[in-house]
Write a protein that binds this DNA or RNA. Structure first.
Length: 263
DNA sequence: ACCTAAACCTGGGCGC
DNA sequence: TGCGCCCAGGTTTAGG
């Protein structure tokens, strides 16, 4: 599911609703979502913790507790953090006063972990950070022989992009997703660098892309799906040249692009 | 290093 | 209605 803009939208909405609240009770409805720790221990660790902050790193949400410990949530494809129960609720977090928020996940690709201190998640650059410069992207791409699409999806290199925003960025930059990363010229890398940031910012302004599962902390869908150019647009006309958008399999994922505009 | 396929899951949508 | 297939915002692992 959720890529950087969706996870950030969830973070922003959730924070004011849970900040400074203490988790009084945890109910694990499906233990498959809790990783690297027994559900019993997880419950014991989290119960009584006061939420000091929620940070985001790539597609992860880091619940920082006042104790300095962390609960880290990855939403997988269909994870949700919501205040109204749905049929896929896997964990309930109860505050005092009979108020709860829920982790829901239809497909169960999401993961919840617990850490005693700030976690090392082994991730690459945040694409919207000032550390992620043109030269950083250039160095990354020059070192990689794989297809550009797969390189941009590698969370150890650039962290937070997923299938939608990689394909949309490549479209605006006019680059075929199957090009070798190290074959890009400086002017193409420049365009790509700009479009990655631009697409992410625009998606953030639209509060993310909602197809089915993704909603923000208040249960609201994003609207960026209305602004997509190629993702999911098989056989529809390219917004620039009207050539039908192609769908192929590349890097083991559905890959959409305009065969005329993207060389 | 790089690639593919499969695994982890539960649907929705389509053709027949 | 129903079956069977393909598809899905992700990550990880195995094997070539």
């Amino acid at each position: 599911m959720p890529e950087l803009p969706e996870v950030e939208t969830i973070r922003k909405g959730l924070l004011p609703l849970v900040k400074r609240k203490t988790i009084r009770k945890v109910v694990v409805i499906d233990k498959r979502v809790i990783k690297d720790i027994a559900p019993k221990e997880f419950i014991a660790e989290i119960t009584g913790e006061k939420i000091a902050d929620i940070e985001r790193r790539a597609k992860y949400l880091l619940f920082k507790f006042k104790s300095g410990k962390y609960m880290v949530v990855h939403l997988g494809m269909t994870g949700r953090l919501i205040f109204t129960k749905d049929k896929y609720v896997k964990v309930e977090f109860k505050f005092s006063g009979n108020k709860s928020f829920y982790y829901s996940d239809m497909r169960l690709f999401g993961k919840i972990r617990f850490y005693d201190s700030y976690p090392n998640l082994d991730l690459g650059y945040e694409p919207l950070s000032k550390e992620f410069t043109f030269n950083v992207l250039k160095d990354i791409l020059n070192k990689c022989k794989g297809i550009i699409k797969s390189v941009l999806l590698d969370q150890k290199l650039v962290a937070g992009l997923g299938n939608i925003y990689v394909l949309e960025s490549l479209f605006y930059a006019g680059i075929n997703p199957q090009r070798r990363a190290n074959s890009l010229k400086d002017n193409e890398i420049k365009k790509l660098y700009f479009e990655i940031k631009n697409v992410l910012k625009k998606a953030l302004n639209s509060r993310g892309t909602s197809f089915s599962s993704y909603v923000d902390a208040k249960g609201k869908k994003g609207s960026f799906q209305q602004k997509l150019s190629v993702y999911g647009k098989k056989d529809l006309p390219c917004p620039k040249c009207k050539t039908p958008i192609k769908r192929i399999n590349a890097g083991n994922r559905g890959t959409y692009f305009c065969p005329n505009c993207q060389k």
